[in-house]
Design a protein around this nucleic acid. Sequence first.
DNA 1: TATAGAAGTCAACATTCATTGACTTTTTGG
DNA 2: CCAAAAAGTCAATGAATGTTGACTTCTATA
Lengths: 190, 190
Amino acid sequence: MGNSDITRAKLIAAATQAFWEQGYSNTSLRRIAQVASVDVALISRYFGGKLGLFKATLTTAFDWPELISPDKDPVEVVIEKYANPESDAHQTSVIRMIVMNANDPQVGELVRQTLRHTVLDPLEARIGGPQASNRLAMFVAVLLGASMVRQSLQLPGMAAVEPDVYARQLRHLVEAALHFDEGPGGREQG
Amino acid sequence: MGNSDITRAKLIAAATQAFWEQGYSNTSLRRIAQVASVDVALISRYFGGKLGLFKATLTTAFDWPELISPDKDPVEVVIEKYANPESDAHQTSVIRMIVMNANDPQVGELVRQTLRHTVLDPLEARIGGPQASNRLAMFVAVLLGASMVRQSLQLPGMAAVEPDVYARQLRHLVEAALHFDEGPGGREQG
DNA sequence: TATAGAAGTCAACATTCATTGACTTTTTGG
DNA sequence: CCAAAAAGTCAATGAATGTTGACTTCTATA
């Protein structure tokens, strides 16, 4: 019917960038509307409010089908994505968005649940094997931590290195995470 | 002189908890004052404003001298702290506070700089050895990521495990981080 | 006890925020 | 061409924020 889809798309684009860079609470609808060159009132009209707009951006954030593909090794998928500066920038933005909003009192629960349902649960099934739950948690921990240290904290040891060095660091940690074996025999003495 | 030190202390205590749990921007001075049973105006009077109060809480956040002590192994210090549920709760709160505020447009720069100056720079010197910068970054990444996955994301594989299991997971990742050796020979094939 | 200064209280301020309703412009359909 | 619906504009509202200044109460000292 209407041609308001363009307006909706502009709003979602501006909202995505704003929410990802500054977090939900620190982003004002007026700013989003200004960037999108759209009146503020249309946000409440089209998306029902700030929360509705955020939900609309969330659905597209966690779209990473290759990670769960049974044909590919998740480790290689991750390394490949992080080694390429272009895709790494996008992926790091997604992680930053998770980190910034996972504790927000208004949208934290939504972010955590969406992440678990759309990414982590399928990934756990994909990883499989014994203690898949444990190794998945360590896997995610490494990815989150590495992205934070690299982009947010900007430690030189990970932020000011060549892409292939960063890829090697990441591979080292990811493999360590997935190779964790918690057996009663205590293979690696502690 | 005055007896206002009690009021200052109550404000700092309430502010620390509030800032650490909800982040800087999502915390209102009125809430802090209410928790501390103190009038709001005294915050601006004693600390100059919201930012001043936040700075006051920051100075005590990064106090962890054992981590840099030349007598102790940083790995053991970390594991010991994380394995004990009591000290782990505090440490995890500190990390959550870092994560929540490191990207804040108002206090992010302050948090990052303070963290680097008071903790990371000395820790890098303590670690030493070749590629200390790289290994430090990986070390921090593991700690940040693990804490986030455990407390913030609450993945069962790290959040619903016995403390000693969590300690083993953490030791596994930390040692992998510090044992990273980026040589041209490419020791560990991928 | 009287008094100066600290400590604490209260109300108001200017801003910013999300949201709403009435209004105007544009596009569509007969 | 014209009415009806969609799309967009504008102003206002109520709530919440940090901050300020005037006021009152307490406390220590002479």
